[in-house]
Design a protein around this nucleic acid. Structure first.
Lengths: 330, 330
DNA sequence: TTGAAAGCGCTAACAC
DNA sequence: GTGTTAGCGCTTTCAA
């Protein structure tokens, strides 16, 4: 059996409660005693059992991180940052993948809620209703979603989309295709809103599509048919797939059509042409979300909503409109 | 306070121990009673507190998954699969990132070991000595590493490298650069061994390098200087960086130099030219590693070593040797 | 088949 | 400043 608080108590000649205090309430114990106890504990290789601690304190020092798809390159930097920041607060992180399925998501939250102090929901697929119901059991922080009275970390894709549209307009583009992702996405709605508000350019919507390379590939035909000279894609995966689809049809990027993605995943830099994209502050989002969660689990503070800036990264997939492909031309 | 086993007991008119049995030892309780208890529990929204359960049973139903860098595209598919398979066994997964630092890795294992039934070490940076010491506290399964008496999941890069070398030889290449990753990597050693055993071709080693795009980019000059007409790179990131470096120097892939990567990350397919690469069965590895861990945590079985096949995926970055760049030519 | 009671490792009043 | 005691939610003997 592993070494427990009792072993440490015995070995250092004090009561278990003193050992406990040496770890979790240092100011309540004599400095010398504490030093000795800590030394003995160290020597024995003692580490507190957090589960047992959680039983009395009610705080597990765990957080649940639920994402739609770990393998989607958007998430790993967020997971990495969240996990690192959790460690700063002495928290451990359960990572779970819902496979984009709301049912899985809900079931996951239910099994997790008793062993965590809070749950980080990243781009959840669950309905607002469902989330509102679950929040009575466990505190949430949501990423890229807005739910009344719930702490959230938002990445300002709207502003990013606006800047991308301006960038394209500045290059002479007047007819722009907005290649969307899945129906009902928060990010998608922000992009639509930005597109609707755009002056100077006319935006045609192509979608919904799968938020993947395949989705982009499959949208190439419709993009061509739309007569657009530039594209704002739902994310980089879609953008990259689209570029490939265009390429297969003999249409070159950016010479014939300009393409802008969203996310700035690693592959965006690796591609040729290097992708112009709206960089999402995923690492910052993960870090801040954990801070909000730890804080909201601790106090009953007013829910904070953090809005993070995005950045338009101009690379090689956007260029001046080609004369012969002016708006409306077939 | 959340609903506990006591609430369920009260509401269904039985003792807590009966409720407990209804969940964890169904055969020891009357079928009717059980049905009733379960119904009441369901109605109350009761879920067992796993931490409390762990306290008596000694089984946490948690596993720790420790990787060198979550954001490295090699890992996410493995994490995803591990996490999914863990759920099949009714396990939850802590995911932690060591930032490639052995110290962090060790500290992580120490804090985690009391709250997990086992730890999955993916491409660990820790020394064998350190791991051997820690294994007394917690069962391990290692991925892509061989430690005596310890269950492991290996991906057969050696065979993959051999096939890649044959493929290149078949295309007429006689002088091949092996662009390595970090010093001391298990994968790197397997590749070296395969290269040393290769007949027909002469292999020159370039490295060590960072296992990243940057590392590949920086190696371009030395690859050119080596006089090689083909390259086997440590991983896809290095291969992609290298291709970019070559490209910047006016050297085209595969016309002038052929390049083979390792891993088959998403970006390999997205790149132009699409990367020829040795596909690593990361998802299968994650799944199997979890199976081994759950099993080895349960029984004291002989440690299993699973060796998984890799596959050479031939795409566009490899081609016939150019006549004017035959072996030895400057 | 069910109930009673002890105890897992730890913390948190409450004494002293 | 330290010891005593009860108890967190659950499982598991042991009786009945």
């Amino acid at each position: 059996m592993a070494v427990t608080i009792r072993d440490v108590a015995r070995a250092s000649g004090v009561h278990v409660s003193t050992v406990s205090r040496a770890f979790s309430a240092p100011h309540l114990v004599n400095a010398e005693t504490r030093t000795r106890v800590l030394a003995v504990a160290e020597g024995l290789g003692y580490r507190p059992n957090r589960a047992a601690r959680a039983l009395t304190t009610g705080r597990t020092h765990n957080i649940g991180l639920i994402v739609a798809d770990i393998a989607n390159p958007f998430f790993p930097p967020l997971i990495k940052a969240a996990q690192a920041q959790a460690r700063v607060h002495d928290y451990h992180v359960y990572v779970a993948d819902t496979d984009e399925d709301p049912r899985t998501e809900e079931e996951l939250i239910r099994t997790l809620r008793r062993q965590v102090d809070g749950v980080l929901l990243c781009s959840p697929r669950l309905s607002n209703r469902a989330i509102e119901r679950l929040r009575e059991d466990v505190p949430f922080v949501v990423v890229n979603r807005r739910i009344r009275g719930m702490p959230a970390v938002l990445m300002d894709v709207g502003a990013g989309a606006r800047r991308a549209l301006e960038h394209l307009a500045g290059l002479g583009h007047r007819r722009i295709a907005l290649v969307l992702g899945p129906r009902g996405s928060w990010t998608g709605r922000r992009m639509r809103a930005a597109a609707a508000a755009a002056r100077e350019v006319e935006v045609v919507v192509v979608g919904p599509n799968a938020p993947t390379e395949q989705g982009g590939l499959a949208a190439a035909e419709r993009v061509l048919a739309s007569g657009a000279t530039a594209v704002l894609a739902y994310n980089d995966l879609v953008a990259l797939g689209l570029i490939e689809g265009l390429y297969e049809r003999g249409v070159r990027v950016p010479e014939d059509i300009s393409v802008v993605g969203v996310d700035d995943i690693g592959a965006a830099r690796l591609n040729r042409p290097k992708l112009t994209t709206i960089a999402m502050p995923t690492a910052a989002a993960g870090r801040i979300a954990v801070d909000l969660l730890v804080q909201s689990a601790a106090e009953r503070a007013a829910p904070t909503v953090a809005s993070l800036d995005t950045e338009l990264v101009i690379r090689e997939s956007t260029g001046p409109v080609a004369g012969r492909r002016a708006a409306g031309a077939p």
